[in-house]
Design a protein around this nucleic acid. Sequence first.
DNA 1: GCCAACGTTGGC
DNA 2: GCCAACGTTGGC
Length: 152
Amino acid sequence: MRYWLMKSEPGTYSIEDLERDGVTGWEGVRNYQARNFMRDEMHLGDRVLFYHSNAKPPGIVGLAEVCREGYPDETQWDESSSYFDPKATQEKPIWWRVDVKFMKKFPEILSLDTLKQDPHFEGMLVIQRGARLSVQPVDKRHYQAVLQHFTK
DNA sequence: GCCAACGTTGGC
DNA sequence: GCCAACGTTGGC
């Protein structure tokens, strides 16, 4: 099993939205590196740290699980969508997504500020300056440190 | 709202 | 294939 962190702006799609929906398709990712992770490397049962970006404060707010592996993101063909990509065809899709299932919402946010200050999280991609990747791998030890943080 | 960091595009 | 210009992300 692998571990991931996925960013979403709570104004666009929050952990509360996922809790309500149960399952959601992670559409709209338009970055090749993130696309590659979703298309090639995320597998059923992988755990996902749900991160609120552009939030006050930003941070990890919950847990999800990959429940469908990579498949084409159909918003790329939808002209009315802001995610529409004129270069994508049905034969050759460019963008992929996965589905994730709600697991839990943490009792409080594990803020970016805390992640930066607690040495258990040293080396995590998300605390690196300029780390914009919206789908990123997480080391098992960092994932466990997140769970540990909430069982103290 | 600002702007640093980063990714993409396109002229050459 | 280089790199300047431009667009986006996302913390602050």
